[in-house]
Each structure stands twice: as structure tokens, then as C-alpha cells.
Computed example of a mutant assay.
Amino acid sequence: MRIGSLTVAIGALLGASSAQTQSPTALHDMPFEQISLQRTECLGSCPSCTVTLHGAGTVVYSGRAYVASTGEHRAQ
């Protein structure tokens, strides 16, 4: 999964979340503590990574195997 595709997926998730509740004024006003998406390895070369959106506005990406960027990356 490319980072660009991931950004689109996160944007869609946040848009769906705000459509179902009162519209938040900022990302840190989201009505959840955290949401995570995890992809695990398979018997081949499947990407292994986790993306976590924290209600306070922090996004944490952790790439483990078969991804373009390994390690932990944070954004606010």
C-alpha cells in the first residue's frame, strides 16, 4: 500500500466519521480515542504495517516488512 493511497483512505475515514456525528472543528476534536488499521504478513511478500489515528490528532505509521518505508513515523 502506498502512502498516497493510505492518505486517501484516512481522509475518507475521517469524512465518514464527521458525517455521522456533529461536524468537528479540528482533527483533535474527533469523537474517538484511537482507530487502527493493521496489515499482517502472509506466506509471500504481503505488506506488514499498522496505521493508528489518535483522537488528539496524531497519526502513527509503523512499517514492518515489504513496505516502502519501514520503522515508526509520526505526524501531527
Rank of each mutant, 00 (worst) to 15 (best):
M1A: 10
R2T: 14
R2G: 12
I3A: 11
I3S: 07
G4D: 15
S5V: 15
S5I: 11
L6H: 06
T7S: 11
T7P: 04
V8N: 14
A9P: 05
A9D: 15
I10P: 03
A12F: 12
L13R: 01
L14G: 02
A16V: 11
A16H: 10
S17R: 12
S17F: 12
S18W: 09
S18F: 12
S23W: 13
S23Y: 12
P24T: 01
P24W: 06
T25F: 08
A26F: 08
A26K: 14
A26P: 03
A26L: 06
H28F: 12
H28I: 08
D29W: 06
D29I: 05
M30N: 02
P31Q: 04
F32T: 03
E33A: 03
E33I: 03
E33P: 03
I35D: 06
I35V: 08
L37Q: 01
Q38K: 14
T40G: 01
T40P: 02
T40M: 04
T40N: 06
E41G: 05
E41Q: 08
E41S: 13
C42Q: 00
S45A: 11
S45F: 07
C46H: 00
C46M: 00
C46A: 05
C46G: 05
P47Y: 00
P47K: 00
P47L: 07
T50V: 08
V51H: 01
L53P: 00
G55S: 06
G55L: 00
A56Y: 11
A56D: 15
A56L: 12
G57Y: 01
G57D: 03
G57S: 05
T58G: 06
V59E: 01
V60L: 04
V60H: 05
V60N: 07
R64L: 13
A68K: 07
A68T: 07
A68D: 15
S69D: 14
T70K: 15
H73L: 04
H73Q: 08
R74I: 00
R74D: 04
R74N: 11
